[in-house]
Design a protein around this nucleic acid. Sequence first.
DNA 1: CTGTTAGCGCGTTCAG
DNA 2: CTGAACGCGCTAACAG
Lengths: 345, 345
Amino acid sequence: MRIRIKEVAERAGVSASTVSKVLSGHDVYAVRAETAQRVRQVARDLGYVPDVAARNLRTRRTGQLGVVLEAVGASEPDELLGDPSVSSAVRRTFDGAIMAGLSGAARELGVPALVVYPGGGHALHTFLDGRVDGLLVGCDPLRGHGLLASLAQATLPVVALWTQRVPESVGAVDVDHAGGAALATAHLIGLGHTRIVFYGGGIRSGVEHFARRQEGYARAMASAGLPALAALHDGPSLLHAVREGVSAVVAETDLGAAAAYRALRSAGLRVPDDVSLIGFDDIQGAEYIAGGLSTVYHPAAEMAAEGVQALMRRLSGEAPRQQLIPARLVLRRSTAAPRRATDTS
Amino acid sequence: MRIRIKEVAERAGVSASTVSKVLSGHDVYAVRAETAQRVRQVARDLGYVPDVAARNLRTRRTGQLGVVLEAVGASEPDELLGDPSVSSAVRRTFDGAIMAGLSGAARELGVPALVVYPGGGHALHTFLDGRVDGLLVGCDPLRGHGLLASLAQATLPVVALWTQRVPESVGAVDVDHAGGAALATAHLIGLGHTRIVFYGGGIRSGVEHFARRQEGYARAMASAGLPALAALHDGPSLLHAVREGVSAVVAETDLGAAAAYRALRSAGLRVPDDVSLIGFDDIQGAEYIAGGLSTVYHPAAEMAAEGVQALMRRLSGEAPRQQLIPARLVLRRSTAAPRRATDTS
DNA sequence: CTGTTAGCGCGTTCAG
DNA sequence: CTGAACGCGCTAACAG
């Protein structure tokens, strides 16, 4: 049987409420230093640990943050990313990064515990039973997220991760996909490329992230005064484009870059000698792709950490905000200056 | 203000305890079907959600399982696995796989929530505040885990993951590292190799997993009547061994296999033509290593899922057990039959 | 079959 | 400066 506050009180020769005051840490209660000292000593000797169930009931708070990862354990739609075993490994890396980010931030901020709800498909009321003070919803980037809409009605403070499509009342932290893709595109432009194509489903895929990445590509092209080309999403049309003068490829994802690389290689084209190739995500194994894939680092852990902070701010009364975490270039060996254009000779 | 049980009771014209009986789901309480029906209807209409804090206090249980991942967010000791950014990505894949496994099993078993404790270095009492009914401790495979020793004294049911070195009172689920390495070694033996070396720190590394992997290698060699060679852990000695007739390499990890591959290639040796190479872990990107690395799949998610089940069994009174999850071969293109030995011509 | 009663263990008044 | 009293919302035992 665990030690209760009453036993500590008896052993210290005080009342239970005095023990509570001492251990609460709040200085607002005036307790004689000597008494406080004795209480603390007895509590330590007895190994007293306050019961959170009772405390939560009394204070109507838990200090815990809920985490819903719609993505955890989900498998990717094959058609989007190719080999399902590979893409599920990618998914897991993101999950791990997100957990690491959440966990690190929670520790920093003194959050006692994160309550992770297992799997998807929970009814709204699951989150309203007083188990948590607020909720982080890690959205599935490849699917919709109806949960947010219903949560927006509830009084529980919510911060969404990995999306920017949220109701007014919900905070959001996403990776700056558009900015990252613009960075990648600008890098190629800076190397001297002018005919640059976006490789992937992009806006047509219906996937929010991918659409934003294509928008970032288009934005960077536009601000350099270059024409944004139509997105390509298969090997043959990519090869056709290269034959027509395209010298650089911005792939929607690193896995997409790997696919593009295979297509280029099978046609005898070299990277970066004949075509420059840049990916997005900096997935594990990217250094093995295309002889070392230049890419855009996807700050999943940073996003998650910022999400915890945003939720804590909401809990202390701040209004919901939408934030973007900047991505950054990771340059390896798949991008280089273009060969002199053959059609000028 | 949330709806409370009393309001449901009033609206349904019954007492609070009747509402409790109906909504508890336990059939042991005799409540007239008609009454139960009415209560359920009113509860639904009002959007009543029972308060877990009060329930937990009353029942002295939470249904929640605690999760400590000593590994989450930790960075690898560089000297063990090479490039820190790469090995931390590997770590995150495992974290993600473990979370996916935990999450999936929790959903299957009806566990309402997993309580993830952020970061390492928690004092023992952190876990004894009644927040959870039992604890899963995911051990850091590259470090020790003193936490288990102290938890063994406590009354909280504990199941350790990713280790076999646990006190009597603690359950354990680990990947069968030895069995997996034996599988890999037997595969090479089956192809006709006889001079096979283990590449990695192995027993000398002090890392439990790696020691077991080397033991598995040695076991497989012994049962084929072949001599187990001393483990090698750097490029030059590997090349020396190959020149002396070694035709196949069992690498401790996939990252180790990547390093071995680089050493072999830089000496002009081809894989698998000149030397067969097999790894361990099946990390993301393994299909890009050594032209497609044959390896051993590391069932992290399966291990985690089994851990949840093991903990649930403990909660229902079963004695702690130690379990192993079998690994399995993933054959790609880095292993092949040896060339005919040059020294026989 | 249903209602009444009595806490679960703690934090927070308010007297003294 | 300290302690007594109260109740957070629910469920288990018992009485009717």
